[in-house]
């Protein structure tokens, strides 16, 4: 059998005609039906690739078309020379359980390794190629925005205290051979309480509450070392790059799927972003330990102030998946381990 039933359209009107398609040995196909007849060479026609259970369409050069409801019946009569390679094979993967399972497995591992290693490594590389000067506007804008929103307000610390701290800080930074000294600022903040921030382009902000929380200035040096790590490692830039790449990847995967799944995509995005943030914090803690060691500072000072911070905000128990920082107790344990 080399015949198959099809619905034929001339391309001019929407009137369907039932026809019989015959695949001849001389590499032509003939169309016969009530008032319809035609003959085309194999090379002149275009057969649509198979997708799920949908119809096959065979397009002829004069814009006429045959639709065959059951692709299987076409497949059965199609001469070997017309069975296409390439994309035609995609259907076989989409269609067989073992390939689907394999695809699922590979997809999951590729996504996992991209989120776990690929994106962070790529972001680190790209950040390294971007000059720090590019971040100047970014850092200043962030600072301005935080001031406009009154997240940060002018410091209430005595000038003498500030001068003395700056001197201590800069002395340590110079001893450590830091080439480009960060710009250190003090700000009062109701909103974020005792905290220190590293903004892009090398701005470090200590809140008044943070300075007051310290029982020893060496504790603040520990905090400074931690924030310095964020700057040295370009964490701000890497954060931006990583999160944009993550968003792009999710758009790629969920594609044109509609609002329900873009809502559902919010949670994994938040989880991954929080995880990246925790990794940066760990990296910064590790840097701080090495830094303090070199400067002959005992890392117990950093542990002390972190512990006090943890007690103050009651977040020192365990790390949650949405936390942007590791649990304080974990950080303190790590610092006091050796």
């Amino acid at each position: 059998m080399n015949k198959v039933e099809a619905t034929w359209y001339d391309g001019q009107s929407s009137t369907p005609q039932t026809v019989l398609l015959t695949f001849n040995l001389d590499e032509t196909v003939s169309i016969e039906g009530a008032g319809v007849s035609g003959c085309y060479g194999f090379k002149e026609m275009k057969i649509s690739p198979r997708i799920g259970n949908i119809h096959a369409r065979i397009q002829f050069p004069d814009n006429s078309l045959c639709e065959i409801t059951d692709y299987e019946s076409l497949q059965a009569v199609l001469p070997a020379s017309l069975k296409r390679g390439g994309l035609a094979n995609v259907h076989n993967w989409e269609n067989k359980l073992r390939y689907i399972a394999l695809a699922l497995l590979i997809t999951a591992s590729v996504i996992w390794s991209a989120v776990e290693y690929g994106l962070p490594a790529a972001a680190k590389f790209v950040a390294g190629t971007i000059p720090v000067e590019w971040e100047t506007a970014m850092g200043q804008q962030t600072l301005d925005a935080m001031e406009t929103l009154e997240i940060l307000e002018p410091t209430k610390l005595a000038e003498q205290r500030r001068e003395q701290l700056l001197q201590t800080f800069n002395e340590m930074l110079r001893n450590a051979g830091i080439e480009k000294l960060p710009r250190i600022e003090f700000r009062n903040s109701e909103a974020i309480g005792a905290n220190a921030l590293a903004l892009p382009s090398g701005i470090i902000i200590f809140t008044d509450a943070m300075v007051e929380l310290a029982e020893d200035d060496r504790e603040l040096l520990g905090i400074l070392a931690h924030e310095l790590a964020h700057i040295e490692y370009r964490h701000g830039m890497r954060h931006v790059l990583q999160n944009s790449a993550l968003a792009l990847m999710l758009i790629m995967i969920t594609g044109d799927v509609g609002s329900a799944s873009s809502l559902a995509a919010t949670l994994p995005t938040l989880l991954a972003q929080a995880k990246y943030s925790r990794e940066f914090e760990k990296e910064a803690d590790d840097y701080a330990v090495v830094f303090m060691d070199k400067q002959g500072l005992n890392k117990v000072h950093l542990a002390n102030i972190l512990e006090r911070l943890g007690n103050l905000y009651g977040d020192n128990q365990t790390t949650g998946y949405l936390d942007t920082h590791p649990a304080t107790q974990e950080r303190v344990n790590k610092l006091t381990a050796h």
Partner: peptide
């Protein structure tokens, strides 16, 4: 049936860094 098409689309899109996306889109629409 669509699950099979979808997962293969996602896989090929990811491993081709997005180049397959238009083919995936046409298959899905079709």
């Amino acid at each position: 049936e669509y699950f099979g098409i979808w997962i293969v689309n996602v896989l090929l899109t990811i491993i081709t860094i997005g180049i397959y996306a238009p083919w995936a889109k046409v298959r899905t629409k079709r």
